[in-house]
Write a protein that binds this DNA or RNA. Structure first.
Length: 962
RNA sequence: GGGCGAGUGGCGGAAUCGGUAUACGCGACAGACUUAAAAUCUGUUGGUCUAAACAACCUUGCGGGUUCAAGUCCCGCCUCGCCUACCA
C-alpha cells in the first residue's frame, strides 16, 4: 500500500495550483462573490512563525469552503512593507530597504506557498511599490483639498530612540509601540488627518457592525464621546475668559475653584509677581515629566496662580490653580472644580484646603436588592437602609420600600448569630407577623421622620434617609429590649461590624450612603436632587443639567457641547522608509500640494538613513531631492513621510483592482468585490480598524465608493503562543517555524489542520508539540481508509445504513460548524467520521463507499487541501476538488432504527433503554416502558407520581415523584 | 478605579434552543504486531466506594434562586486574562 507522504503530494499540488493559476478570479462571474482576506503582514526578515500563521489558515479554510460552495472567491495577499524594522536594518547594514524588502517578500511568498494557500497571486500588493504609494499620495491630496489633511503645531509624542513623532494610538502605556522606550512631549509642526470629522459616524455605525463585541467596545471607548457643556469663566478684573468643558453642568453652583493644565496658554497672564516663579517652576517640572512618571505619582500637586475667576452661576470669586491632573489635551485643558462631586477635585480641595460645597443630594436609590420573598416581592422596589443610634454609635439595618414610606426591620444580628439577615426578613414578611411597621412620614421635602408602630414605640433612634441621618420621634428608651417582638433578633452593630459583615456585601449603595452620612466619604458623583443651587433647588440633577445649560446659554456664557477622547490622526513621521508626503513649501514657507501629474513623489535612494533630533527625516540630507519646481516656482519638499497606517488604510480596495495605472481603483471593480466579507486578524483593534473605516467614509463622501463600511465581518483571532504560554518572539528564542514543522514530515496539511483544531479561533492557545502528531495520525488514517478501498478488488456487500448515517451526519456537522466558524469542532467531526469508517470495516468495492469517501475528501479540502486533492484524484476524478462542490446531507439518513431512551426520576438519570425508533411516537407506551424498568421502579415504588414529562426530540422521560 | 471576556478531567477543549456533562484530540495505562524500538492497530481512562463490576453518591470557580430538568437562565461573590486609565 502506498504510504501517506505529505512532502511528495504537497509539492505536486502546489505546483499544479501555481501552473494553472488555480485561484485567480475576476468579476465576470454570475456566482455570488466572496472577498476574504487577512490583515496583510509586515514581511520581517525573520520570516513567519506558527503564531503568525493561524489567521492565514483561517482565511484559507473559509476561502476554500466558500469556493466549494460555489462562490466566486477572491482571496488576495499582500505586504505592508513600509516601517521602522526595515529602516533600522538599513541603518545597521547599509542595505537599502527597497532591496531587503523585496528579499523578505520573496521569502514570505515562498513560505506562504508551502502552506498551500489558495491565493490569487495576480493581486499581490506591496505598499512600498511606487505604483502603490503614488495612490496613497493621491489620497493625501484629496484629503488635503477637503481640509481633512492639515498641519498644526502642537505638543506631540516624540520617541527619542526612533527620533520620530507617534500617533496617540502608537503610544502604549507611555512607551513607543515599536522600540518600547519612553516617549516625550515635543512641540512640533506636524501633519494630521482629521478623523474627528467622522467621530460621530464612526461611533454610531459601530452598532451595525458584525464584529466581535470586544473590538466594538474598544472602538467606542477610544472615540469616547462625552455629552456636556462648555462654560466660560471670566477672570476677575480682566476681560479674559477661561473656557472649561464639563459633563456635569448641574454641579456648577458647587464649583469652588478652577484648575488649568500646566500647558494652558493663559497661565502667563494669570500669574503675578508673587506667584510667577512658583507657577513657572511647577509648569516646567510637570511638562518635563514623561507620561509614565505622571502615571506613577497620582498624588495631587498644584499651585495657585494668584488670580480669581467669577463663577457665572453664583457670582462668587473662585481661585484659579494650576495642576497636572488636568490634561491639556482633553476638553479645554481647564476645569471648573467641584470637589463635592468629583473625587479628583475632592482630593485636591482637601489637600489644599479649598472650600467644598455640596449641590447634589443623592436621593434614595430604587435599585432592587435581594428579592425578599420570591416573585411577588421582586416586583416591589425595595432597598436597605441603616438606622444609626448616636448614643451607642450602632446601626440597625432596615429594609425599605420606596412607596409608601414604610420599612421592615430585617436585620440586626449578633455577630455569632448565623441566621441570615435576608432569611430573617423573608420569614417575618412572609408570615405577615405585622412588624413591618416602621413608618416614615415625610415632613419636609426630602426629609423623613421614622415612627415605630406599637411594638416599637418609644425608641429613640435616627434613620438614615437620603443620605442624611434623621432623629426618630420618641425618646424614651435607649436600648431595644430582647423581648420586643420586632427587634428580638436585632442587635445594634457599630460601623466596623457593618462594614465587615460579609452578608452586607450586596448593599454597596447603602454602605456608600452610610459612609457619606458619617463623613467617611463625602464625594457623591451620582445623580440626585439639587440643593444650594438657587432657583434649581429641588430639581432632579439630570433635569437641572439641561436647565442650567439653557440658563447659561441665555447669558451667553455657556453652551452644550460634545467632546471626544479621540484626537486627530497624526501622520507625520520623521523617518526615511515611508510614503513621502506630497507637499512642498514655497519661499514664504507656505505649503503646496505636489500636482497629480508629478506623482508619485519617489523616495530617493540615499546612503545615510540615520535619523537625528532635528525633527526632519533623513530625506532632508538629499539636497537634490529637496528641490522641486511647481508651476515654475522653485520649492522645497516636505521631508516627513506618512505613518504606515496610511498605506494600510486603503489596500482592501486596491486588491479589487491592483494593476490599475489610471486610478487608485475602478469603482465598478470595487463595487463588485467590496466590502470585504471576511476580514481576519488578531491585532490593530483600534488603530488600523478605525482608520480603514474613516477612509472608507471619506471615499464614500468623495463619490469614490458606494458603501460606508469597509468590512462586513471581522474575525478577531487569538494568538498561538509558545508551549510555555508566552508570546513567541525571536528575542525570547521560543519561535517555532512553520516550515520546520512541515519539513519534519508532518506536512502543511497537518500544520493547517492542527492550527484550526487547537481550540476556538478567537481564543489564545499554546502550541503543543505533541498535538500535531494527533492530527497527523488523523490525516494518515484518512489516507489509509481510501487506500484500502482502492485496493479492495472484490465487490462489496449491501448498502449499510450505518455508513449512510455516518456520512450524512459528518456533512451536517462539518457544514454547520464551518458556517459558524467553529473550525475545531469541524475537525473533530471529521475525525469521528474517519473513526467510524474504520469501525465499519470496508467490505469491498461498492458505489456507496465510493460516495462516502468522496464526501470525506471534499469535507477535508478546506483543512488539508493537498491530501484532499490527491485522494480525489486517486478516487478517479480529473476535475479539481475546489470545483467539485460541497456535499449535502439529508436528514432522513440521520434517523437510526434503534434509539436510546433516557429515563430520569426527579431529574436524575436512572435508566437508558434501547428501543425501536417508531416506538417513540406513542407517549403512553414510552412511559409504560420507562416505568417498567427495574432501576426506575426502585426509585418510584411506594411514591406518588406527581407528573411525567416526555421530551420526544431528546428521547427523554422525566418522572417526578414525591 | 472603569470596561470587556473567561473559569468544565492530568492537559487543549466539546455540549448550537434549558433536556444523557466531560465529544474530539493529547497524555497515561494495558494488549496485539516486532529480536527490539519506532510506526500502526485494539481496548481502558472525571472522582468517592470496590479486588473488579453493577448500583449508589459527588462533580462544570463559590453562595443563593427559578425550573419537572441548570455548565447553559436570574441575583450576589471570588479568581484569572485582556483592554483602558487623573477624559472633567
Amino acid at each position: 500500500m502506498k504510504r501517506y507522504n505529505p512532502q511528495e503530494i504537497e509539492a505536486k499540488w502546489q505546483k499544479v495550483w501555481d501552473d494553472t493559476k488555480a485561484f485567480e478570479v475576476d468579476e465576470k462571474s454570475s456566482k455570488l462573490k466572496s472577498y476574504i482576506a487577512e490583515m496583510f503582514p509586515y514581511p520581517s526578515g525573520y520570516g513567519l512563525h506558527v503564531g503568525h500563521v493561524r489567521n492565514f489558515m483561517i482565511v484559507d479554510a473559509i476561502a476554500r469552503f466558500y469556493r466549494q460552495l460555489g462562490h466566486n472567491v477572491m482571496r488576495p495577499f499582500g505586504y505592508d512593507t513600509f516601517g521602522l524594522p526595515a529602516e533600522n536594518y538599513a541603518i545597521k547594514t547599509g542595505l537599502p530597504p527597497q532591496e531587503t524588502t523585496l528579499t523578505n517578500i520573496n521569502h514570505f511568498r515562498e513560505q506562504f506557498k508551502r502552506m498551500g494557500m489558495a491565493v490569487d497571486w495576480s493581486r499581490e500588493i506591496n505598499t512600498s511599490d511606487p505604483e502603490y504609494y503614488r495612490w496613497t499620495q493621491w489620497i493625501f491630496t484629496r484629503l488635503y483639498e477637503k481640509g481633512l489633511a492639515y498641519q498644526a503645531e502642537n505638543l506631540q509624542w516624540w520617541c527619542p530612540h526612533d527620533k520620530t513623532v507617534l500617533a496617540n494610538e502608537q503610544v502604549e502605556g507611555g512607551k513607543c509601540w515599536r522600540c518600547g522606550n519612553e516617549v516625550k512631549k515635543k512641540r512640533m509642526k506636524q501633519w494630521f488627518f482629521k478623523i474627528t470629522a467622522y467621530a460621530d459616524e464612526l461611533l454610531d455605525e459601530i452598532d451595525n457592525l458584525d464584529w466581535p463585541e470586544k473590538i466594538k467596545t474598544m472602538q467606542r471607548n477610544w472615540i469616547g464621546r462625552s455629552q456636556g457643556a462648555e462654560i466660560k469663566f471670566v477672570v476677575k478684573n480682566t476681560m479674559r475668559e477661561i473656557s472649561v468643558f464639563t459633563t456635569r453642568p448641574d454641579t456648577i453652583f458647587g464649583a469652588t475653584f478652577m484648575v488649568l493644565a500646566p500647558e494652558h496658554p493663559l497661565i502667563n497672564e494669570l500669574v503675578n509677581s508673587k506667584t510667577r516663579a512658583a507657577v513657572n517652576n511647577y509648569c516646567e517640572t510637570a511638562m518635563r515629566k514623561t507620561e509614565v512618571e505622571r502615571q506613577e505619582n497620582r498624588e495631587k500637586t498644584g499651585v495657585f496662580t494668584g488670580s480669581y475667576a467669577i463663577n457665572p452661576a453664583t457670582g462668587e470669586e473662585i481661585p484659579i490653580w494650576v495642576a497636572d491632573y488636568v490634561l491639556s489635551t482633553y476638553g479645554e485643558g481647564a476645569i471648573m472644580a467641584v470637589p463635592a462631586h468629583d473625587e479628583r477635585d475632592y482630593e485636591f480641595a482637601t489637600k489644599f484646603s479649598l472650600p467644598i460645597k455640596e449641590v447634589v443630594k443623592p436621593h434614595f436609590i430604587d435599585s432592587v436588592n435581594t428579592p425578599i420573598d420570591g416573585k411577588e416581592w421582586k416586583e416591589r422596589r425595595a432597598c436597605i437602609a441603616i438606622v444609626h443610634d448616636p448614643k451607642t454609635d450602632k446601626y440597625l439595618c432596615v429594609e425599605w420600600l420606596k412607596q409608601p414610606w414604610t420599612a421592615f426591620v430585617i436585620g440586626g444580628m449578633e455577630p455569632e448569630d448565623d441566621g441570615d439577615i435576608i432569611k430573617t426578613a423573608e420569614r417575618e414578611v412572609h408570615e405577615e407577623t405585622g412588624y413591618r411597621n416602621l413608618k416614615f412620614k415625610q415632613v419636609l421635602p426630602g426629609e423623613v421622620v421614622v415612627e415605630f408602630y406599637a411594638q416599637h414605640k418609644g425608641i429613640n433612634r435616627r434613620a438614615l434617609y437620603n443620605g442624611v441621618l434623621f432623629e426618630l420621634v420618641d425618646d424614651e428608651r435607649d436600648e431595644l429590649s430582647a423581648d420586643e417582638e420586632a427587634t428580638q433578633r436585632a442587635v445594634w452593630l457599630n460601623y466596623d461590624q457593618i462594614m465587615n459583615e460579609p452578608r452586607m456585601t450586596g448593599f454597596k449603595d447603602q454602605i456608600l450612603y452610610l459612609e457619606r452620612a458619617l463623613g467617611q466619604n463625602l464625594v457623591w458623583t451620582g445623580e440626585g436632587d439639587m440643593i444650594n443651587s438657587g432657583q434649581f433647588d429641588g430639581m432632579e440633577s439630570a433635569e437641572a443639567s439641561e436647565e442650567i445649560v439653557a440658563w447659561l446659554e441665555e447669558q451667553g456664557v455657556g453652551k452644550s457641547k460634545v467632546t471626544y477622547r479621540m484626537r486627530d490622526w497624526l501622520i507625520s513621521r520623521q523617518r526615511y522608509w515611508g510614503c513621502p508626503i506630497p507637499i512642498a513649501y514655497d519661499a514664504a514657507g507656505k505649503a503646496h500640494l505636489i500636482p497629480n501629474d508629478q506623482l508619485p513623489v519617489l523616495l530617493p535612494k540615499i546612503t545615510d538613513y540615520q535619523p537625528d533630533d532635528s525633527g526632519r527625516s533623513a530625506l532632508a540630507k538629499d539636497k537634490d531631492w529637496l528641490k522641486v519646481t511647481i508651476d515654475g516656482e522653485e520649492m522645497t519638499r516636505e521631508t516627513d513621510t506618512m505613518d504606515g497606517y496610511a498605506c494600510s488604510s486603503w489596500y482592501l480596495l486596491r486588491y479589487a483592482d491592483p494593476q490599475n495605472v489610471e486610478e487608485a481603483w475602478s469603482k465598478s471593480k470595487v463595487d463588485y468585490w467590496n466590502p470585504v466579507d471576511f476580514y481576519v486578524g488578531g491585532d490593530h483593534a483600534v488603530a488600523h480598524l478605525l482608520y480603514v473605516r474613516f477612509w472608507c467614509k471619506f471615499f464614500a463622501d468623495e463619490g469614490l465608493l458606494s458603501f460606508r463600511e469597509p468590512v462586513k465581518r471581522l474575525l478577531y483571532n487569538g494568538y498561538i503562543n509558545a508551549p510555555d504560554g508566552k508570546k513567541m518572539s525571536k528575542s525570547k528564542g521560543n519561535v517555532i517555524d512553520p516550515i520546520d514543522i512541515i519539513d519534519q514530515g508532518y506536512g502543511a496539511d497537518a500544520l493547517r489542520t492542527y492550527e484550526l483544531f487547537i481550540g476556538p479561533y478567537e481564543l489564545d492557545a499554546a502550541w503543543d508539540p505533541r498535538g500535531i502528531g494527533g492530527v497527523y495520525r488523523f490525516l494518515n488514517r484518512a489516507w489509509t481508509v481510501v487506500q484500502e478501498y482502492l485496493e479492495a478488488n472484490e465487490k462489496g456487500g449491501d448498502d449499510s445504513a450505518a455508513l449512510m448515517r455516518a456520512q450524512h451526519s459528518a456533512v451536517k456537522r462539518v457544514t454547520e460548524d464551518m458556517y459558524r466558524n467553529s473550525f475545531n469542532t469541524a475537525v473533530a467531526a471529521l475525525m469521528e467520521y474517519v473513526n467510524e469508517l474504520y469501525k465499519l470495516k470496508l467490505d469491498g468495492f461498492n458505489p456507496q463507499w465510493q460516495e462516502a469517501l468522496e464526501v470525506l475528501v471534499k469535507l477535508l479540502a478546506p483543512f488539508a487541501p493537498h491530501l484532499a486533492c490527491e485522494l480525489f484524484e486517486q478516487l478517479g476524478h480529473e476535475e479539481r476538488i475546489e470545483d467539485a462542490g460541497w456535499p449535502e446531507w439529508d436528514d432522513k439518513y440521520l434517523v437510526a432504527d434503534e434509539v436510546e431512551l433516557v429515563v430520569q426520576v426527579n431529574g436524575k438519570v436512572r435508566a437508558k433503554i434501547m428501543m425501536a425508533a417508531d416506538e417513540l411516537e406513542n407517549e403512553t407506551v414510552v412511559l409504560e416502558i420507562a416505568k417498567g424498568q427495574e432501576n426506575v421502579q426502585a426509585f418510584i415504588n411506594g411514591k406518588q407520581i406527581i407528573k411525567t414529562i416526555y421530551v420526544k426530540k431528546n428521547r427523554l422521560v422525566n418522572i417526578v415523584v414525591k
